[in-house]
Design a protein around this nucleic acid. Sequence first.
DNA 1: CTGTTAGCGCCTTCAC
DNA 2: GTGAAGGCGCTAACAG
Lengths: 341, 341
Amino acid sequence: MSNNLPTLKEIARQLNISVSTASRALHDHYSIGLRTKMQVHKLAHELNYEPNQAAISFKQKKTFVIGVILPSLSQGFFSSVVNGIEDVAYNKKYTVLICQSRDSEEREKHLVEAMKSNRVDGLLISISKNTTNYDHFELLKKYKIPVVYFDRVPKMPDIHFIATSLGPGMKEAIGLLVKRKRRLIAMINGPEKLPASQERLEAFIHGLRENNIDYDPSFVVTSDLSQEGTYQATQQLLNLEQRPTAIIAFNDYVAMDSIKYAKRSKVKVNKEISFVSFANEPICNYLDNPPIASVEQFPYQQGEKATEILLQLLERNSGEPEGAGVHTILLQSRLVIHDRE
Amino acid sequence: MSNNLPTLKEIARQLNISVSTASRALHDHYSIGLRTKMQVHKLAHELNYEPNQAAISFKQKKTFVIGVILPSLSQGFFSSVVNGIEDVAYNKKYTVLICQSRDSEEREKHLVEAMKSNRVDGLLISISKNTTNYDHFELLKKYKIPVVYFDRVPKMPDIHFIATSLGPGMKEAIGLLVKRKRRLIAMINGPEKLPASQERLEAFIHGLRENNIDYDPSFVVTSDLSQEGTYQATQQLLNLEQRPTAIIAFNDYVAMDSIKYAKRSKVKVNKEISFVSFANEPICNYLDNPPIASVEQFPYQQGEKATEILLQLLERNSGEPEGAGVHTILLQSRLVIHDRE
DNA sequence: CTGTTAGCGCCTTCAC
DNA sequence: GTGAAGGCGCTAACAG
């Protein structure tokens, strides 16, 4: 068999028709006679004809590729997001190009460049935790490449995004702890500059107030989200004169590290101190002393919805009122209780 | 700013030179005068010129994309593989297109088709655990799309692949158990048709023999690798007249499920029964009673090496002796001991 | 209903 | 050293 893939030209030649007729026939264009249409389809099938995607991208100035930039695939949260993205994108015949920033601002910048140079039609981005400068995102705006941010959203005006509002989950979490008579509630937060941390802090303070608990700043410590950072944060809390009876962790990984440290320090987890966290990673089910509850942030749905918005942006003929409105979706988080006390 | 990206034509126009000169200048072609070369580079930079990748792919019949098909990103093992792949590919300016088969043969077939129709230059594949029919892989051969299989490799002749030979790790594992006076060693294997299962079984029997332990077929049960399947498999072992004192699990996830079940059944994990498993997933470090050891299979290195082989295949001008040789690499697995007994 | 024509951006002979 | 011309595969006016 020849190595050369069949082209429209070849089909046209064999059928003694013109290339454009062949093209139209394959697209079921209304103006093509049933007879010809059938012939073309038949031959195309026999030859295993596949339209050359590269040629189409070139011609249409559209690649049918959406790029995804996220921190890391190894977190269950993000791989769920990817599943949501894939499921929606594949349905619409889009290809998904996934890249990890690995929480490096530099790498993220580089990836944005690469995506741009690869002419992706649009982007889905969850920003790296170390990203403080948004120039590369501004660039995308300038080049009019549509972007929908998800979960970790930069603080920029007029952007499309979907995220989970942590307030409701946090409120439920504190409510649960209070119900279980644990009013000395501390929090291990992420880096202060991270929007996600700021949101947690606000929600935390707000949640405490709603439960008539005074907010004690020394009960909030931060971790850089590394294991070591979380160990130190935990130590800080355990060393407090008045030791907290509950810890709300930035996410399940932080919770796991913190629990590990607490155990090593001979603290009875979930007896002396209860843990609650964010993300609701399935992996927690394997722990002997998992967080008693975790706030679900609906990664799959975020992926789905973000993709839907992006595709909508891509599909709508760009001749519309510029920036008429931005899509901002906030899902309501929800506490998932793990133990059956 | 105009929405239209600058092209070679535009650069040529502004400098009053021809398009081909501009093209050659940017590629530092020897025949172009230093003066012109500089001018072109300068203007290209000013205009933020980026070659249109779609046009290049089209023209060169080469997309600089390598496709990756693997079962699931949510397993730490595979996301490590991806890291290895990315690191090598990016260095050589290739783009990596990742897709998950989610262990569905149908989906895998579909993805192969999609990759083919997207004209990826080559593929890296780890087959789904439910794949029994290899027609779609044969197809790739027919179309001369280079493929390197990794870790989960189909049983086909003349393919390039890299995997980890489980023999050494298994031998060490059994050796460790014997040293700890656990000679009643059972195994929870994966589905029988899975090559990975067959390899484990062989290595298991072989390893037992080397330690002068009789092989008792009732000590080998299989799980479909779901949680429920593993529960049943564990139950089978626990119900045996002569209960094993050690279980070798297909991988860490199976081990975790099995441990969970054992605990529920009031079996003292690592006292009455010790566990050893495969993959050495970091997540196991969070368990209270993790497997005492796990066989490292070097995912990152597999990713790196597979990509290197593939790129080598792509780079070598295809005018060489066909199938002169296939690349087959077997890394030696190694047992990593978790506890410090 | 179908064919002709033109061109997307780039590379690559071939000419000068 | 540089320019002109052709063509990759496909789509989309515009003519019939």
